[in-house]
Amino acid sequence: MVVRIRLARFGKRHQPIYNIVVANARTARNSKPLEVLGTYDPIPKQSASGEGRKYKDIKVDISRAKYWLGVGAQPSDPAWRLMAMLGLIEPKYRPGGMQQGREMHEQPIHVQESVQDRAHVAQA
């Protein structure tokens, strides 16, 4: 079974908070995962001074995330985005949209390929 890095939605109505989890792909969304890598708070917060840009809080154990990617865990799309921001894998979608295909062809995507290759191996 595929091991995925994905988000599990907790919190209350209109106050979501996501666990970044490593879980078997076929288990239920909020079931007990193999490991909780961290959390993702999707609601942008203003800094205490009320100035500057808003920010989203993300807590993640980077070394464990690297390990799971290394052993072939497949991130879901939102999890991919977060991992890509940390520089652990190549981004799937570029912030500007559109240009992703061209850039991805120009730059060989080592990590992404290797991760996917390993996943294929694992599946096979």
């Binding site: 909780v36 961290g38 840009r53 989203k56 993300i58 464990r64 921001m85």
Partner: peptide, 21 residues
């Protein structure tokens, strides 16, 4: 902490330890 600039807001990544649970 690592801050990644997004289009509309920043993403603040805090490195934590899984073992803390």
């Amino acid at each position: 902490m690592r801050v990644v600039q997004g289009r509309r807001w920043d993403f603040r990544f805090e490195d934590v330890r899984v073992e803390d649970v």
